[in-house]
């Protein structure tokens, strides 16, 4: 019979224990912050909270959600995520449709592909981009957060690979019925590739929700920060006080539950879409790596 040796049994048991521990290590830090956010201030300051709230209270959340700055950045974060995802998906889908055509149907696609792929290899860097955005007068606008990243070449390649798996017969039938390219894209390609589009949309949403650096450099005023940037500026000041670089240590420290609540709210949307993400990303990765 298969693997009946005693050594293998011992291995199976220790392997199970090891992998369980590894899983715990990945989730416990998040659980700790979650527990902190629902604990009383006193318990948090006394450092007795582990993975379960002590002195349960929703105080920290009440405080967080009545903080105008927090709500404002939360809204900006939602705005950029929605606008950025829609924009990016529309642009990418249109481009991927053209690029998914064979070289016989669309001579010249190779040139376009290189124009796009080159941007994955070489970039002008941070400062020229910043100079450009300020020259375009996009500082302090949402456009600075959604336009530069709208064309994700990687997602475009994934999308065109999805499109290529669509049977030729489907679109040929549509052409014979007199449909144009736009019609084929809209009525044949999109319905058939809905799962792929949903997957890439999720990835784009996660990307936008998590992006913080562009918010920091393109928003001259903290009023315009999206949530991720707001959280960044908060944790940086937290860090500085904890390693003793600034002197507001005590004041910051007592805010620990509120900080935990803010961090947890920042992570919440990702946790909510995670089950859907997990369903698809394995496919996406394997497909992408095989095709490219």
């Amino acid at each position: 019979m298969r693997y009946r040796s005693r050594g293998y049994t011992v291995f199976t048991i220790s392997n199970t224990i090891f992998l369980s521990l590894l899983s715990l290590i990945c989730i416990l830090p998040l659980l700790h912050v979650f527990a902190l956010s629902f604990s009383s201030r006193a318990a948090a300051t006394a450092n007795i909270v582990n993975f379960w709230p002590i002195g349960f209270t929703t105080d920290a959340y009440v405080k967080t959600l009545s903080n105008v700055m927090f709500l404002q950045s939360l809204w900006t974060g939602v705005e950029r995520t929605v606008l950025g995802t829609v924009l990016s998906m529309v642009v990418i889908t249109m481009a991927a449709y053209s690029l998914s055509k064979s070289i016989y149907k669309f001579p010249g696609r190779q040139i376009y592909i290189w124009v796009f792929v080159f941007t994955m290899l070489f970039s002008g860097g941070l400062i020229p981009s910043y100079v450009l955005i300020s020259k375009l007068k996009m500082i302090d606008t949402l456009w600075a957060l959604v336009l530069p990243s709208a064309v994700s070449v990687w997602n475009m390649i994934l999308m065109l690979n999805f499109f290529r798996t669509i049977p030729q017969e489907l679109e040929e039938a549509a052409y014979i019925d007199g449909a144009g390219h736009l019609r084929v894209l809209w009525s044949v390609y999109l319905p058939v590739s809905m799962p792929s589009i949903a997957t890439l949309s999720l990835f784009t949403m996660v990307f936008h929700w998590n992006s913080w650096f562009d918010g920091m450099i393109y928003m001259s005023n903290p009023d315009g920060y999206p949530l991720a940037t707001y959280l960044h500026s908060m944790i940086v000041s937290d860090n500085l006080s904890r390693v003793g670089v600034t002197l507001e240590s005590v004041a910051n420290f007592s805010n620990r539950t509120v900080k935990s609540a803010q961090i947890f709210i920042g992570a919440l949307p990702i946790l909510l879409v995670y089950p859907f993400l997990q369903k698809y990303f394995v496919k996406g990765i394997v497909l992408g790596s095989v095709k490219s």
């Binding site: 830090p29 912050v33 902190l36 944790i235």
Partner: peptide, 16 residues
């Protein structure tokens, strides 16, 4: 899971 959380979130957790 940690792959999908940003370094802002994870940084905040790490600092704590």
């Amino acid at each position: 899971l940690p792959h999908f959380l940003s370094w802002v979130i994870l940084g905040g957790i790490l600092i704590d």
